[in-house]
Amino acid sequence: MIRKQERVVFTFHTTTDAMAAEIQCKDLGGRMIPVPGEITADCGLAWCAEPQLEEVLRSALNTAGIPVQGVYRLMI
């Protein structure tokens, strides 16, 4: 079975933005996942982390000038 937990998920317009995000986020916490179907049945990449990391991740992405498509709280 897949155990669901609340997570914050950042999505991106392009794979390039996602790869830039990985560099900024990897030491802060979380990992890259396929974009969950709750957001869109897309085939893109999303950064998934524990919910309490949302602000620090937002800030890091914003400081680095990486465009974020959306930020979601999901049970995944």
């Binding site: 317009h13 390039t16 085939c43 893109g44 465009p67």
Partner: peptide
């Protein structure tokens, strides 16, 4: 493109 797969148009963002 690997992204925006349900859009009828190709993504407008560079470099995609």
């Amino acid at each position: 493109s690997g992204v925006q797969s349900h859009s009828k148009t190709h993504p407008a963002q560079m470099p995609t």
